[in-house]
Design a protein around this nucleic acid. Structure first.
Lengths: 175, 175
DNA sequence: TCTGTCGTCATACGATCGGGTGATTTTGCG
DNA sequence: CGCAAAATCACCCGATCGTATGACGACAGA
């Protein structure tokens, strides 16, 4: 049975075309966002002008009180403003911990109910130690380490140590 | 048998904290944000009502054409909308670690003889995926993943996946 | 004093991982 | 074409990990 050619999927072998660990976010995305913003601003201007034009129509429909138009315009443009405020800031990113000496997020620690011992073990897990090695370093049984790590994973909402490390870094629990 | 009272390991805790906008598991902080949002919404409503009240003043100042008021209201409320759009989303922003744009260390990659596929798998390991999950994502057998990761660990000089992740980050192989 | 939390330890079981061996197919290149 | 590198897959086996359960002592606070 030769060559079943099993992979009907583009990602297979020869072409490692798209790969996740390469975030080209640097310049290209930035320029794209800028262009997008300009276009959006232009569109906003267009809509605004059109709306103003529409307001002139009010001259012909004097049947309703002006306050109604005012309120309508207010609500409408508030919505528009909120929409564009969201659009313009949704991609905004707050860079944190640019290289700082690592400040521990104690609030998160408390919020998740992670005890000091568990936190300590998280740090050792992040160093790539096995449960046995952690136990040896802390002078406790490997079973104890397993208990701690298990509870730790439970509190962190993960079920693998690599996930725990990644999550711990994201939450500022470990450097 | 009481514990040997071991380990004077300080683990470097006693520092201050850093407020971070709680992605997934936030319960307490989430409630706090909700309260804040409610208050902000209330304030927005108040301002809106006040503005509408102010519009009534238009009755007494009929000297200017209505379009002017319409445009004024439009611009004003657009600004208000944008402002609140910003206010409401600024806290929702995703925190991202800034280690620079991440430039891949291809020399190290070549120096260690790591193939593209192996590198790809390293990235997926770093995401906390199991071998099985990696196989499913790449449409290959779990055995294949194990082969790749095994050779990868050999080339990287590690024997655990957490170590591989840490080492990969240090060497600039993964972000 | 009682209660709750924390740390400790054990046992057991299933799942996963790491390492080893061998094999076949694909692919890129001279 | 032929070769070497890369990728794929399988099987095995021991080690490690994750989870569940139960238990015990220490200690702080009500």
């Amino acid at each position: 049975m030769p060559a079943p050619a099993p992979v009907p999927v583009p990602v297979a072998c020869g072409t490692q075309s798209l790969r996740s660990p390469t975030p080209g976010t640097g310049t290209g995305a930035g320029a794209g966002a800028g262009m997008k913003r300009i276009l959006l601003t232009g569109a906003a201007g267009g809509v605004l002008i059109a709306l103003l034009k529409l307001i002139e129509y009010k001259h012909f429909v004097q049947t309703y009180p002006a306050e109604l138009y005012g309120g309508l315009i207010a609500v409408l443009f508030t919505a528009i403003g909120i929409y564009f405020g969201l659009k313009l800031t949704r991609k905004e990113v707050v860079m944190v911990r640019d290289r700082g000496p690592f400040v521990l997020n104690q609030e998160k620690l408390k919020e998740l109910g992670i005890t000091p011992r568990e936190h300590e073990i998280l740090g050792l897990i992040a160093e790539g130690l096995s449960n046995r090695e952690i136990g040896e370093r802390l002078f406790v049984s490997e079973n104890t380490v397993k208990t701690h790590s298990s509870r730790l994973f439970d509190k962190m909402g993960v079920n693998r140590r690599v996930q725990a490390v990644q999550r711990g870094k994201d939450l500022g629990l470990i450097p």
